[in-house]
Write a protein that binds this DNA or RNA. Sequence first.
DNA 1: TCACTCCGATAAGCGCAGCTTATGGTAATA
DNA 2: TATTACCATAAGCTGCGCTTATCGGAGTGA
Lengths: 293, 293
Amino acid sequence: MQLGQLKVFQVVAQSRTFTAAAAVLGRSQPAISMQVRALEQELGVPLVEVVHRRIQLTAAGDELLRHVDRVLRGVEALDRAMETMRGGGGRVRIGASATPSSYLLPYRLAPFVRRHPDVQITLSVENPAALRELLESGAIDVAVAMGALDTPPWQGGFEIDTLGTEELSIVLSAGDPRRNRDWTIAELAAAPLVLRESESHTRVVLQRALGHEPRPVMELASNEAVKRAVAAGLGVAVLSRLSVAWEVEAGRLAAATCPDLGGPRRVYTYRGLSRRRLPVEEALWQALHDELT
Amino acid sequence: MQLGQLKVFQVVAQSRTFTAAAAVLGRSQPAISMQVRALEQELGVPLVEVVHRRIQLTAAGDELLRHVDRVLRGVEALDRAMETMRGGGGRVRIGASATPSSYLLPYRLAPFVRRHPDVQITLSVENPAALRELLESGAIDVAVAMGALDTPPWQGGFEIDTLGTEELSIVLSAGDPRRNRDWTIAELAAAPLVLRESESHTRVVLQRALGHEPRPVMELASNEAVKRAVAAGLGVAVLSRLSVAWEVEAGRLAAATCPDLGGPRRVYTYRGLSRRRLPVEEALWQALHDELT
DNA sequence: TCACTCCGATAAGCGCAGCTTATGGTAATA
DNA sequence: TATTACCATAAGCTGCGCTTATCGGAGTGA
């Protein structure tokens, strides 16, 4: 069965004569007759008959017409969806680790979303290992991570770019006298630490700087929970400077620096290397890096 | 766009390699590659890519797959519907005038419906003029009428058969002394008549027998209403004997005969002459006449 | 009733879409 | 590095489906 045959049948059903249907379809009359007969033979039921020089659907033809209408509407919907894709609409799936997804990406995505209101963006929060896997399997189109993702073992790997820079701050309660100065690594090691779970990138950096796995007094699942813990005087945290900027500005928390943790580090964007991309995907990638100030 | 291409895409999307998809479809690998590429070119979007030796759908391909699933499900539904038609299922539309549709057809249709529980029968009540038009336009497949329908002016007309016989009775109230005997036409002409509306076949017969248009004391829209009027003593009615059999038997009404109205007359069945028929339609036509006792 | 007209069916011919086999190139695997 | 597995390309062929030309038949008007 062919879509063309169904279309022919639909037009025939709405026409008075085969000749008229042929004119509508821009084909010759025998072509129409043959198509309809082929359809009848394939389906094994009579579909049309000519009575009083007018096309008349049989009961089977009547039933078929309903189905054909439904199928062809489905094809039209398909065409429209692809047209949208072609024209720069569609869907982009971003995966990001916690800090950029909360404190960095919203600012970068906002102008893009305003310019492309018909584009649907999905932002999921994952740890770096999951990001690699999702990107590899095609479940996300773009990954954003603070550190370097393991590059895949086979040739090519990912295309990598820089979204911006990020710096770790030592986060203190509001009145802490040790604020606004450089800490040594020894000083940090001696302080009671409130940290995110062990999969987070901050933990990796800390472990490298301390020379051993940090032993936090408390381990919490979100940046916000960590901040509240510090504010409550439970200890000292190490968080992205971006994530505490508002609270420091408002005087609810204080910050210090620690050069031994390494200076500003890049936030990386990843995407498949040789992937064939939709216009939206390309536009979003460009937007992410163009907005860099 | 071709249904075959959509099917190929669907299989490819569910396969790991083009070669595997080709095996499933029983075609060669280049055939699959070409079909997919043709689809991509026609739709103007990339659909699949091969990453890590595995087929990977792009965002557009993912979206397309959903639409393709829907369309192909629609085609399957279509096939099933046609299979039903082919196998003797389906729908038959009958048009009949009031008396046969109430007092004759139910008995004839009952055994057929019992034997074909998946067949949908539509029975609509129409006057003879409407029946002709509906049959002619294909809106009904079979017509049942008491008298002869005007045969269409062009060659062929309808196929006509006899469903059974019917006789007009004079209907009287239960205690009427004039029951159970032959009336003369003059006697009938002198009686106060309660009749159906002027389009009914009974009126045509009466008019012919009386030599003029009958002048009823009351004109009612249904057989049941006429019976109640007679029972209430409003006058005398002329109705099909079949339609009052129950009431006469129960003693609620009485009947008389009138040879001048003509003896038993046939109830005719009509259908289009050269119409191509489904198995159901043929079976119903046969059943209508086979059940004749 | 007969000629006229309109429409669908049939036949012959042809162009092209789409399949096949054969082969080359490339990425993952040992 | 050799091997394997897979996709892309090329060339050739088959057959589907279109076209034009023509016939036959049914409805229409004088």
